[in-house]
């Protein structure tokens, strides 16, 4: 999907130009189109020859990857709070770019108990919808097995969200990050529906979809994503898969890693270690 051969794309585009034009104008007329401010916004083309997307960063030289070592996660939720602050995610307990799930098996109970920081009990423990902590709700229970699992956008190689976007407002970059163009998104939320991982949410104030960018503004400046930066136990690993000695390459090489919902064919790029059969 992501890499179409040039002639095919051009041919399709040409076809679309005709078909699209015909239909659009029959319906509304070209004059109406010209009056659409968002549609006619022009942007300066980048100078050719220079590195893209910034002068110090060439995206053709990287292929990012993310690792989650669930055996290390302590559920402190510093990542969740840092992400909200770093990326201006709405300060409520319902919309997240990253979150942490807790899986608890109790003795004599077949059902796995799953909660996340947005659960009302946990919000009560944190005391506000802007700060997060896991309530110690299983303190007195006979816990057979329990663990935490951090979640975020999987930046899939074949992202279902990009496939369904009608405008091209979301796309996968050359360096393997799925981004959203907030200046072009029409706010139809088809992508939110299409993501099997629940990684996307709709920002009501901005009227656009939003999700994790792996802190693209940080990684292109040589920094780690905010969640990785603040994780006190190293449960989140980030790096360049091109560099065979990078943290993520070593993580993938030295562990038997798995991805979430491989059956969707999305081919995620967040690799997990230490998760259980219930995690999806």
């Amino acid at each position: 999907m992501t890499k179409e051969s040039k002639p095919t794309l051009a041919a399709r585009r040409a076809f679309l130009t005709k078909l699209g034009g015909a239909a659009t104008c029959a319906a509304a007329g070209a004059a109406a189109l010209a009056a659409i401010p968002g549609a006619s916004a022009k942007t300066e083309p980048a100078a050719d020859g220079a590195a893209f997307p910034t002068k110090d960063y060439d995206w053709t030289k990287h292929q990012w990857g993310f690792g989650v070592d669930a055996t290390k996660c302590i559920g402190c939720l510093r990542c969740v709070e840092a992400c909200k602050r770093e990326n201006d995610v709405p300060a409520n307990a319902h919309q997240f770019r990253t979150w942490v799930e807790r899986y608890v098996h109790l003795e004599g109970d077949d059902e796995v108990h799953i909660d996340s920081q947005q659960d009302p009990v946990n919000i009560e423990a944190s005391g506000s919808e802007k700060t997060f902590r896991f309530a110690n709700r299983y303190k007195d229970a006979k816990v057979y097995k329990a663990f935490f699992v951090p979640k975020l956008c999987n930046h899939c190689t074949h992202p279902a969200c990009v496939q369904v976007c009608p405008t091209g407002a979301t796309y996968r970059t050359e360096d393997g990050v799925v981004l959203i163009d907030h200046g072009y998104c029409i706010g139809c939320r088809y992508c939110v529906q299409a993501c099997p991982y629940g990684a996307r949410y709709f920002n009501e104030e901005q009227g656009v979809s939003d999700k994790c960018t792996w802190c693209y503004h940080r990684i292109t400046k040589g920094l780690q994503p905010a969640c990785v930066e603040v994780c006190p136990v190293g449960a989140r690993i980030f790096g360049d898969q091109r560099d065979k000695e990078s943290p993520i390459s070593l993580f993938i090489r030295n562990n038997r890693v798995q991805v979430l919902r491989p059956e969707t064919g999305n081919a995620p790029n967040v690799f997990y270690v230490g998760i259980d059969k219930e995690v999806n």
Binding site: T24, A28, L33, I36, P37, G38, A39, P166, T167, G168, A169, Y184, C185, I186, G187, C188, R189, F202, N203, E204, Q206, G207, V208, S209
Partner: peptide
Amino acid sequence: GHPERAFN
């Protein structure tokens, strides 16, 4: 969310 961009 952005009806004015519908024609995108």
